[in-house]
Simulated scan of single mutants.
Amino acid sequence: TGVARRTAPGGTAATYTAAGFVRRGLAEAGFEVERTAGYAHKRHMTRARMPG
């Protein structure tokens, strides 16, 4: 994806969405993805890291 091409090795991304299709898309693009506790009223969020 465009995000993956522009992310340096070791770079991170975070989003308030915890939707499975978003996590799967990030993983398919090469990110290491985890669902974590969210901020404020959100139950979950997604954090991703580009290996390297």
Rank of each mutant, 00 (worst) to 15 (best):
R35W: 05
R5T: 15
A14P: 05
L26I: 01
G20Q: 10
T36R: 11
T46D: 05
G11K: 02
R35G: 10
V22T: 12
G30S: 05
G11N: 03
A19C: 06
T15D: 12
H41E: 11
R49Y: 00
R35Y: 08
A40T: 14
R24I: 11
T36Y: 04
T15L: 07
R6H: 11
R5W: 09
E34G: 06
G30M: 03
R23Y: 06
M50E: 02
V22H: 07
H44D: 13
M45Q: 11
P51K: 01
R24V: 13
G52K: 02
T7I: 09
T7K: 03
R24S: 10
T15N: 05
H41K: 11
G2E: 14
A13W: 06
A18V: 08
A40N: 12
A48K: 02
M50S: 08
T7R: 00
V3T: 14
R5P: 15
G2C: 14
R5K: 14
V22A: 10
E32D: 09
A18P: 14
R6V: 15
K42S: 11
G2Q: 13
M45A: 12
G11D: 02
V3Y: 02
A14M: 14
G10R: 01
V22E: 07
G30V: 02
M50A: 07
G52M: 03
T46Q: 06
G20Y: 10
G11E: 01
A19D: 11
R49W: 02
H41A: 15
P9L: 04
G25C: 06
V33G: 07
V33K: 00
G52Y: 00
G20N: 13
R24Y: 08
Y39Q: 13
T15K: 03
G52A: 04
G10A: 05
V3K: 00
Y16L: 14
E28H: 05
A4P: 02
T7D: 00
T15Y: 03
T12C: 07
T36L: 12
K42M: 11
A18N: 09
A18G: 09
R6K: 15
A13L: 12
R5N: 14
G2T: 15
G11V: 13
A4Q: 00
R49S: 01
R24A: 09
T17P: 05
M45H: 06
V33A: 09
G11M: 04
G11Y: 00
E34W: 09
M45E: 13
R49V: 01
R47D: 09
F21C: 07
R23A: 10
A8H: 03
R43H: 13
A29H: 01
P9F: 06
G25H: 04
A37C: 09
G20E: 12
R43E: 13
V22G: 07
T46R: 10
K42F: 06
L26M: 10
A13C: 11
G10S: 03
M45L: 12
G52E: 01
A19I: 10
R24T: 07
F31A: 12
H41G: 12
E34R: 10
R6F: 14
P51H: 03
H44M: 11
A48M: 03
R35M: 13
A29L: 01
Y16R: 15
P51T: 08
V22R: 03
M50V: 06
T17Y: 03
A48N: 04
M45G: 08
Y16F: 14
A29F: 00
G10I: 05
R47N: 08
T1N: 13
G38V: 00
P51N: 08
E32L: 05
A48P: 03
R23H: 08
R35F: 07
